[in-house]
Design a protein around this nucleic acid. Structure first.
Length: 462
RNA sequence: GCGGGUAUCGUCUAUCGGUUAAGACAUCGGUUUGUGGUACCGAGAAGCUGGGUUCGAUUCCCAGUACUCGCCCCA
């Protein structure tokens, strides 16, 4: 008994900590994000802010209207639009049942929700084309990796009600504009046309016939795909599948005349816009609703040799609205992965968005001054002076330290004496000089100093 | 979903089959009571979780988990 106890106690500290640990380790399970999900911390926010601002200005430049839709929808919205047999639906979608028994899903992308909203709110009566911009988190139960999260942010630009290929070109233009403004120089657009569903049926038959004849050479995955979604075999990166598909009939050659003309004119528009593109006849994309134009966007050369960072993609989906019960409405759109934009931007040394930092620090000393300083603070705010403080601290020294760390140009000091006199000390943090002014003259005096600072020794700190 | 690597204070790193688990940066406090940047002193702060081997494990083994890389897929 004793020995057991002493044995347990022998690593005293450990046992104590063990106990503490048990408690805190239980907590540590709680204090952890879900797999594949993450916090976007303050340090990273300036980069996100830059991206958000660029997106929102593109939204204005191209006359898009912002729309926000819920992150959860009825599950069948996605199964019907994206299609069963796709990876997104078959293995990546977050499904759950509500307390009321509805089958719901976290959105794995934005387009389906936009189409739903378009129909639900009768947007077909609006003047065409209808341009919608949306951004928000989407969810895919995938294996996490850098630049790939189970919760990630997408930004979507979608145009409804116009089938002319010039709208396709405009979509490319938007993407290109955003990316170049972000400083991502080496962008590659891969384009393909997969035609209409009717035309594709034909092609699909021909492709399946070909693939069946080569079936023994395909990977297991592709053997399954051959039945479920044969077009995606074209996309397979397995070498042996590539050997087969390189000689496979190409979708572009089986396009109906209209799709062919549409594709041709799109490429002409892209030339006109001087947007560099690569026609990739194997490009199919993993969502069923696409028709005609499909494309993907890559940033070249920041990863190793021959590696490209995928930033987004999209395409035309002329049949989607109708298939969901709306009027026959052609549409095209694309999504950008914001997490990847940020990542790529940081990799390329892009500049973050900088918030204005306060140049004034307010320090107080003593109970009376503490109370007064609250008033001074709001007085300054009303006069558009950004001011930092650390009200929680008592002594002047540590407040001045904070002021220094905050790179303040001027520190205002209110002590017992000043609080009684109704004055404030202005201390120039560069020269160290101070002057005392009456509180009602403070704003004026302060602005004068800041102004002269800005003119003379304006590179205050590097 | 498959395969590889990694796991120590907030961060970066050290050490060790028995230790007060060390340091740097950061944080907070102090160096005579109302004055910052430098300097000095001090404080708090860690072995992912669960099993096994062992007299004893943070260290060795296994599993889980997370991160990471490659694949699948995508954004």
């Amino acid at each position: 008994m004793m020995s057991v106890a002493s044995k347990k106690e022998s690593p005293r500290k450990k046992d104590l900590e063990g106990g503490k640990k048990a408690g805190s380790s239980k907590e540590s399970l709680v204090v952890q994000t879900l797999r594949g999900m993450r916090d976007i911390l303050p340090d990273e926010q300036p980069y996100w802010e830059r991206v958000r601002r660029l997106l929102s200005s593109a939204c204005q430049e191209f006359a898009f209207h912002r729309i926000d839709t819920p992150i959860a929808e009825y599950a069948h919205l996605f199964t019907r639009s994206i299609g069963t047999g796709t990876d997104i639906i078959d293995k990546e979608i977050y499904l759950f049942e509500t307390r009321g028994g509805d089958r719901a899903a976290l959105r794995p992308e934005l387009t389906a929700s936009l189409a739903r909203a378009y129909i639900e709110h009768g947007m077909q009566v609006l003047p065409k084309p209808i341009k919608l911009f949306s951004t928000g988190p989407v969810y895919r139960y995938d294996r996490p990796q850098e630049g790939r999260y189970r919760e990630h942010w997408q930004a979507n630009f979608d145009i409804f009600g116009e089938e002319d290929s010039i709208l396709d070109a405009q979509i490319f233009q938007i993407a290109s504009r955003i990316l170049s403004q972000l400083g991502l120089k080496d962008i590659e657009f891969q384009v393909n046309s997969i035609g209409t569903p009717e035309g594709r049926k034909e092609y699909r038959k021909i492709l399946v016939r070909y693939l069946e004849s080569q079936k023994h050479k395909l990977c297991q995955n592709c053997k399954d795909r051959l039945v479920k979604n044969p077009l995606r075999v074209l996309d397979c990166k397995e070498d042996k599948c590539f050997q087969v598909t390189v000689n496979a009939p190409k979708s572009a050659e089986y396009l109906d005349p209209e799709s062919k003309a549409h594709f041709k004119s799109l490429l002409e528009y892209l030339d006109e816009l001087a947007i560099p593109y690569v026609v990739n006849p194997r490009l199919v994309r993993g969502l069923d609703y696409y028709t005609k134009t499909v494309f993907e966007i890559y940033s070249v050369g920041t990863l190793g040799e021959g590696k490209k960072a995928s930033l987004g993609g999209g395409g035309r989906y002329d049949g989607l609205i109708k298939s969901l019960g709306g009027e026959n409405t052609p549409a095209i759109g694309f999504g950008l992965g914001m997490d990847r934009l940020v990542l790529e931007m940081i990799r390329l040394g892009g500049k973050p968005y900088r918030e204005l930092r306060p140049k004034v620090f307010l320090a107080q000393l003593g109970d009376l001054a503490k109370r007064k300083s609250l008033r001074v603070f709001s007085e300054l705010q009303k006069n558009d002076v950004l001011v930092a403080e650390s009200f929680g601290r008592g002594n002047l020294k540590s407040q001045l330290r904070s002021a220094n760390k905050a790179n303040a140009e001027v520190t205002l000091i209110i002590g017992q004496k000043e609080a009684l006199d109704g004055t404030v000390i202005l201390k120039d943090m560069v020269t160290g000089a101070q002057e005392t002014v009456r509180q009602d003259k403070l704003v004026c005096a302060l602005k004068k100093i800041l102004k002269s600072n800005a003119q003379s020794h304006h590179p205050v700190k590097s």
